[in-house]
Design a protein around this nucleic acid. Structure first.
Length: 114
RNA sequence: AGAGUAAAUUGGAUAGUCGCUUGUAAAAUCUGAAAAGGUUUAUAAGAGGAAAGUCCGGGCUCCAUAGAGUAAGGAUACUUGAUAACGUCAAGCGAGGGUAACCUUAGGGAAAGUGCAACAGAAAAUAACAGCCUAUUAUCUUUUUGAUUAAUAGGCUUAAGGUGAAAAGGUGAGGUAAGAGCUCACCAGCGAUGCAGUGAUGUAUCGGCUGUGUAAACCCUAUCUGGAGCAACACCUUAAAGAGAAAGUAAAAAAGUUACUCGCUAUUUACUUUCAUAGUUCUUUUUGAGUGGCUUGAAAUAUAUAGCAAUAUAUAUUCUAGAUAAAUGACUAUCCACGACAGAACCCGGCUUAUAGAUUUACUUUAAAA
RNA sequence: GUGCCUAUAGCUCAGCAGGAUAGAGCAGUCGCCUCCUAAGCGACCGAUGGGGGUUCGAGUCCCUCUAGGCAUA
C-alpha cells in the first residue's frame, strides 16, 4: 500500500471545481475528473462555518480512512474532491454513513474496477 | 445532615486486528561514481488545561541609529516585595458587600489651569434676583401707643424660594434687631505635631472652620516606551518574466552643447531612434519549487534550605510532538461516572473566555444529639 | 498563521469634545384621491450586536465576549 497523495495546490482545486463531474450523496458531494497519470489524488474541503477544528479534523480522518478501503478498486488517474453537505450537522455523521455514500457515488461514476 | 467559602489534583480505562507522523537501527533490496535518497522490517515516542481568543510582556530575526538623549505620540498609576519583563503575581492599606468563612475594587492630582453640568430652578458657583431686620420720611387709623403699605439709608445670607443627581459640612441646642460654625455637643472632612509602622496608613492632641461633581473630559505629575514580524529571516536550485551593464558583430542618419545666427573643417563626448533589436556572459528584481529557521528550554520531576507568600538558591535524575491541504483514526469485546470544552504550527511568562463530571485538603454557618 | 477594521429600523445611511423622546430616504400597514391600479397627499409601525463598568445621565468613554469583513506568501 502506498500513501495517499493529496491535492495540494489551489489551481488543482479550481480545476476540479470547474471541469470535474459532479455527483452527490446524502452527506458528501464529489467532483471527479480523469487524467492520464499513474496515481490517484484526493482532496477534502470543509468550510470553517460547519464546525471548529476538532470536528473538521474528525471528518477528514473518517473520509481518509474510507478512501483507503476503496483505493485499490478505483481506476488509476482519477482525481477526487470531496465536499461536505453544508445543511447536515457534522456531529451526526458516522463512519458507516460515509461508507454507503462512497460506494454509491463511485458506482454511479463508473470509476470502480473489478 | 443541609447550605456555603477558598485552594489543589484529574480530564475515560484495558485487550486484539488494520492504519498515520517523526527519530534510531541495521538484515534485505532498488537508484546512484559517491554523498545521499526510496521501499520493507524491528524498535521508541507522539496534542491541552485551556493547545482557543490574540488582550499584555519577553526571547529570536531583520530594518533604522556612531552612541546617548529630547520633543511628539502611546501605555501604566494606593504601599512594599517577586520577576528576564509585564497592564502579571504575592503580602498588606483604604473603600464597598456578606450572619460568617470570605469576596470585589483602573484606588495619584479637582486650593496649577481650561471645559462641561441638559430639563427643572432665583441661582449649577466672586454674584445677581428675591427676601429678613432696624432707622427716617410719607400715607391710613387713632388721644397716644400701635398696625399696614411705599420710598431712602444701613445690617444680613441659607432662615424663606422645594427645583434637581447635586444647593455651599450634617443633626440638635443656645444666641441675635434679623441672621450666620457666631458658640457648644456628637458625627464627617481638612491641616499641623507626637507616637506605631520600611511604607500605604492608623491613632492621640491641637488648630482654624470647608474651598460642588466630573481627570474611563482636556490636562498636570511620576515611571516605561525605536519599528516590523517565523508568511520574519538565511541558504540553495534552476523554470518563467522583466530591467541594467559589458564586450563583440553589422548598418544608418539626425540633433544638441562649446555667448547668439549662418556656412565649412577638425576633434571629443553623451543621448535618442531604427534595422535582424538576434544570440553570449555577468549583476539584479518579481513569481514558482526546495531546505534550514524547528525545538535543550528564564525546561520538567524529586528533595533540601531561605521567606507569611509570590519566588529564589543548591543537589540529583530525565530528554518529553515537530506536522506542512497538515500526523492520534476505524472496527470488535469488557467495565463504569456513559466521556464536557476542545486540536500544537517559532518558543516562553501571564490575562481573558469555554468546560460533563470525579477526588482531596482547610474553613464558616444552621439544625439535632451527646 | 500574523496584522488590522467594522457593527444604528426589513435595506442604504446620518448622528458624538456625554444631555434624545435616536433622524432621513426606500420598503411595510392604514386612510384620502381614482371606475381600478400606479403616482401623489396624510398618519402609523419599526433600530443603537450581547454583558459589565465610569458618570446624576452612555448610541457616544473604558473593559470583555460574539458575529462579519480586509490585507499579507
Amino acid at each position: 500500500m502506498k500513501n495517499t497523495i493529496m491535492l495540494k495546490k489551489n489551481y488543482e482545486f479550481k480545476n476540479l471545481f470547474s471541469k470535474g463531474k459532479f455527483y452527490y450523496g446524502d452527506f458528501i458531494y464529489m467532483y471527479i475528473s480523469k487524467t492520464s497519470k499513474n496515481y490517484n489524488k484526493l482532496g477534502i474541503a470543509i468550510s470553517k462555518k460547519q464546525g471548529k477544528a476538532v470536528k473538521r479534523n474528525k471528518i477528514k480522518r473518517l473520509i481518509r480512512e474510507n478512501y483507503k478501503n476503496f483505493e485499490n478498486r478505483i481506476e488509476k488517474g482519477t482525481n477526487i474532491l470531496i465536499v461536505i453537505n453544508k445543511e447536515k450537522n457534522i456531529e451526526e455523521i458516522t463512519f458507516k454513513d460515509i461508507e454507503n455514500n462512497f460506494s454509491n457515488i463511485l458506482k454511479k461514476a463508473n470509476v470502480l474496477v473489478n
